[in-house]
Design a protein around this nucleic acid. Sequence first.
DNA 1: GGGGTAATAT
DNA 2: TATATTACCC
Length: 320
Amino acid sequence: MGEEVNAGKYTGGNHDEGDCRNDDRVSEWELGLPNADDLTPLSQPLISPELASAFSISPEPRRSMIDVNRASQNTLSSIRGELSSSNSVNFKSFNEERGKDGMVVEGEESDPDLVGDGSDSRKVRRIDSCTEESEFRAENGNDDGSARTASKRARLVWTPQLHKRFVEVVAHLGIKNAVPKTIMQMMNVEGLTRENVASHLQKYRLYLKRMQGGSNEDPSSSDPLFTSTPVPQSLHESGGSGHGHGHGHGHKHEHRHGNVGHVPMPTPMPYPPQMMHMPRISVLPRMINDITFDSEDWCSTQMRSSFDLMNHSCPAGTSF
DNA sequence: GGGGTAATAT
DNA sequence: TATATTACCC
């Protein structure tokens, strides 16, 4: 394998083993790849020196063309392995990381092969330089204006990680302040819409209601996504409005009005959430893949200064 | 306009 | 089945 890789351009089109469909997919995928002009030059560091020091990242060793080619070949062989045999190897771990880290969005022409468990060829781009977007992205498959027809928003998949983040935000807002818009802002997930959140919140509330109301959960009817994420204490009854929910479904007036009192912090928190002890930037070359965020006080010390650098405000009171 | 819920669509 | 969308209400 691999001589067809040179200097960043993969001249695909050799279909020795793949079937036509896969080959088409590869070609299609290639079309979406950034060209040389879009890529950061090798000579240019991915992150600024300040940031590097802030994160205690040791300077990147210089990459030569050879290194790049080798990395490209690895990637390609992984991909091709994935395509030509259902037995994924490297690519799988790659996907797993994506699954944990990023949002998973189905493309409009949902392709079970690629999308099924959280991979999407189209979003394998542009998780750039860690600094500007230190958080998740919810790509919609059409942010590259080209091709891909207008299309509606891609379907969002609530990964456990995403859900966890959701739960955390809801928990810290308090159940009564947890409204779609606020949640959306605090989750600070790019591309996540209020509708996404509202929909998920609706489902989540139903789940909570079941938990509280029935006091016993029927595992068979529980959503694994929810059951796998413990419901924070603060969600059980915070708000004093009691869980008046008389399970009354018929009509709705639960306009919870009660003075919400003090909302601790309606401040959007730039994510790198505390939940993570895993590498955040999954896609980009291993170069920055080693960065691990300490969950604990991600927002203190180094991070804080980093955010200052980035002109992001770091919510002072953010203590999860 | 935005939130909540239920029903329905995809 | 999971998620989105819609309708209807507050």
